[in-house]
């Protein structure tokens, strides 16, 4: 009887594990099979010569170059908005704040981390409309609003990774500088932060990945289907994930559909590389910490 239960467990585990693996393989395999053919310079630049497009001499209409540029700019702005705030909050949580406050703050960050991205996007959208009607009549959903909303989305990840990286530093190292007369900030900035840098970088990479893949936040806060290259912080822009979404619902011809497949492959590669890099760094760190813990 027990023997049977054990057998069933093993069989069940293999069936479920392989089924899931198979499902993912089929989904991604289909994407690669259908889209590999469209991965060339026409995907990016359409009929425009790459040099002309890159030097902004001619506009690209039937390639995804504007969307790629839009995503790059968007990620750059939102990560540079979120990283300083996230690291500062993480430092405060790990090094300055009393345990009780840490728990309360932590709870708020957890809620923010779990808040659906569409809710954050809708928040950004309605605040913009609210400001448009009251204080700033010229404000519309735009690149800046998207970047700010995305910054809110990734803030909790940055805070948590910074906090964990700092808390993982062994007590011996943590007490050395203060014992020699260093102030708290000297200890944090000269000893602890350099030590925690790798962990913080892994959090930042994760944040970049999340910004690049997110569609729900930006679709309410300023992304549009055809805006050309991002021109200003206060105007609409294009982005890769949104491009994929629009193609899937309203592609005009086979060419556009092929571009959609190509864009999906590019986003897929970009995000999986970023996420695995972040995991790799973190598992390295964990192994180093485990190695230290042993006598």
């Amino acid at each position: 009887m027990n023997r049977l239960a054990e057998k069933m467990t093993v069989i069940g585990a293999w069936v479920c594990g392989l089924a899931l693996l198979g499902a993912v393989a089929v989904l991604l395999g289909y994407l690669v099979m259908k889209g590999a053919g469209s991965l060339d310079s026409a995907l990016l630049f359409g009929d425009v010569r790459p040099a002309d497009a890159l030097l902004l001499r001619r506009q690209v209409f039937d390639g995804i170059f504007p969307a790629v540029a839009g995503t790059l700019v968007l990620v750059l702005i939102s990560v540079s908005l979120a990283v300083p705030a996230g690291i500062a909050a993480g430092i405060y949580l790990a090094e300055y704040c009393p345990a009780r406050t840490r728990r309360i703050f932590g709870h708020f960050y957890d809620i923010l981390a779990a808040t659906p991205s569409i809710v954050i996007g809708f928040f950004g959208f309605s605040v913009t409309i609210f400001l448009h009607r009251t204080l700033a009549p010229r404000l519309y959903p735009c690149l800046m609003v998207s970047a700010l909303s995305l910054a809110f989305l990734v803030l909790p990840y940055l805070i948590r990774t910074t906090q964990m990286a700092l808390e993982g530093i062994p007590a011996g190292l943590r007490r050395t500088a203060p014992a020699l007369g260093a102030t708290r900030w000297q200890n944090v900035s000269r000893v602890l932060l350099p030590r925690a840098l790798t962990g913080i970088v892994s959090g930042t990479i994760l944040a970049i990945g999340r910004c690049a893949e997110d569609t729900a936040v930006i679709m309410l806060t300023g992304v549009v289907a055809s805006a050309g290259l991002p021109r200003s912080l206060w105007a609409g822009y294009e982005a890769l994930p949104f491009y994929i979404y629009t193609v899937s619902s309203q592609y005009a011809d086979a060419r556009e559909l092929a571009n959609g497949y190509g864009a999906a492959i590019i986003v897929l590669i970009l995000c999986t590389v970023l996420f695995s890099l972040s995991f790799l760094i973190r598992s390295r760190l964990a192994r180093r910490a485990a190695g230290r813990a042993l006598p």
Partner: peptide
């Protein structure tokens, strides 16, 4: 390998899943 694949899966954008879902 299984663990690595699960980690990589967290990075697959939902919009990509949705895109393949529509056509497959």
């Amino acid at each position: 390998f299984l663990r690595k694949v699960a980690e990589i899966m967290t990075g697959i954008p939902t919009v990509v899943y949705g895109f393949v879902g529509i056509f497959l």
